[in-house]
């Protein structure tokens, strides 16, 4: 591989990380509260609002069943409205976030549903309000599961980010297509794939490590 490709690989990696980080962040800001609401608003639950729960559930399902590459193209007008342009790395954050938010919402919903109903009962018996139960019981108890869910989201977004090259987004995926495929440079393709594997591997390990730091459910050696 020629030396002048190294800077391109480096800047593409940074672009990928930028897109993934921003879409995870904004996706969590939207998907987090949405997931908590979905987990607690069925009939008879803490924030019982069955109609809104059903409507939001349908919206989430619709967004999740749209193939990502179609979503990217379909929302170009929206992207242009938000980002001012439909081309480039920043513009690519819009479809990535729209794909991430419902996915993250479902992951967080699942993590919160795993919390033992006995804990909710105990908190109600203490005189907790529904919001106190969410803040002091559900979210802290579900945190290891939420972190593992977000790890899964990050890994999926690394994969999605490779597709946004199709609409002018940059990053590793775009580099692989333009240099590795269109210019017949298999070494670039290989480098891109290796970097993606390393990125996914690193994110997965990091996520699991953070989750285990927050997981007090199983006793373990604390270096005593």
């Amino acid at each position: 591989m020629s030396a002048n490709l190294i800077p391109i690989l480096w800047s593409s990696t940074l672009q990928t990380l930028y897109m993934v980080a921003m879409s995870t962040l904004i996706g969590t800001l939207i998907g987090g509260p949405l997931g908590v609401f979905l987990a607690t608003s069925r009939r008879g639950e803490l924030l019982s609002a069955p109609v809104l729960n059903t409507v939001l559930g349908l919206v989430v399902n619709a967004a999740r069943s749209t193939p990502f590459i179609i979503l990217v193209v379909a929302i170009i007008p929206l992207t242009r409205m938000i980002a001012g342009t439909s081309i480039g790395t920043t513009a690519a954050i819009v479809p990535l976030t729209i794909a991430a938010a419902p996915f993250i919402a479902r992951l967080i919903e699942t993590a919160i549903r795993e919390v033992d109903a006995g804990l909710i009962e105990a908190a109600r018996a203490m005189g907790a309000t529904p919001l106190q139960i969410v803040r002091k019981v559900l979210v802290p108890e579900a945190l290891p599961g939420i972190i593992l869910g977000l790890t899964l989201a990050v890994v999926s977004l690394i994969g999605y980010s490779a597709m946004v090259g199709a609409v002018g987004g940059e990053g590793l995926g775009d580099l692989g297509i333009r240099y590795g495929y269109q210019r017949f440079m298999p070494e670039v393709m290989l480098a891109v794939v290796v970097i993606l594997i390393l990125l996914v591997q690193a994110m997965q390990s990091l996520g699991e490590w953070i989750a285990s730091r927050f997981d007090k459910r199983a006793p373990r050696n604390r270096g005593r």
Binding site: D116, L119, A122, R124, A125, M126, V137, P140, E141, R217
Partner: peptide, 17 residues
């Protein structure tokens, strides 16, 4: 409820605390 304490068969303690 703040004047009535309750204890449970399965304790219902928060694992994260």
């Amino acid at each position: 409820r703040r004047e009535v304490g309750m204890i449970f068969q399965h304790f219902n303690l928060l694992a994260s605390r």
